[in-house]
């Protein structure tokens, strides 16, 4: 799984797009993972079940990947556990403050040409590129 994978990444992207657009067409919902998770953590009547079902589907899909294509589950981390904790916390609080992540803003929002999502996506991709590059080449030992 090293290096550029143009065919598989395009096919995978198209599958993600179909998964997200199906949720809109059939259920009228935005496939934003952080929003769906946030809704489960803050349960409201009649709005929690579909979120839990979607997340159960996501985990089931992950189990299928592990069975059929285990190379895609061979995760490697190149940072310390404390950096992983900091990163996880920032992803959690940031996606809630900014009301979306790579799926909600990046796929569904950009796919609707929504101004908030276009701006948010540019900001998080920009900050992610800057951070990933800086901590791996300038502030080493993070």
């Amino acid at each position: 799984m090293e290096g550029f994978t143009p065919v598989l990444s395009t096919i995978g992207g198209v599958l993600i797009g179909f998964a997200a657009i199906a949720l809109l067409y059939f259920n009228g919902r935005i496939a934003g993972i952080s929003g769906i998770m946030g809704g489960v953590l803050r349960p409201q009547k009649s709005d929690t079940l579909w979120r839990a079902v979607f997340l159960a589907g996501l985990v089931t899909g992950a189990a299928l990947i592990l069975l059929l294509h285990p190379a895609a589950m061979d995760l490697r981390f190149d940072v310390s556990d404390s950096t992983i904790i900091l990163g996880g916390f920032l992803v959690g609080i940031g996606t809630r403050i900014g009301t979306g992540c790579t799926s909600g803003h990046g796929v569904c929002g950009v796919g609707r040409l929504a101004p908030r999502s276009l701006i948010a996506s540019a900001v998080f991709v920009g900050f992610a590129i800057a951070t990933a590059t800086l901590v791996r080449h300038v502030w080493e030992g993070f």
Binding site: A62, L75, F77, G87, V91, G94, G98, F127, I129, T131
Partner: peptide, 26 residues
């Protein structure tokens, strides 16, 4: 601010919320 904080966390580790959930199965 939210998008900026999310971007920093994503750039540190390489996981966003969807892959963070599928990664649990690994």
């Amino acid at each position: 601010v939210g998008a900026g904080l999310f971007g920093i966390g994503w750039g540190l580790v390489g996981l966003c919320p969807g892959p963070a959930m599928t990664a649990l199965v690994s």
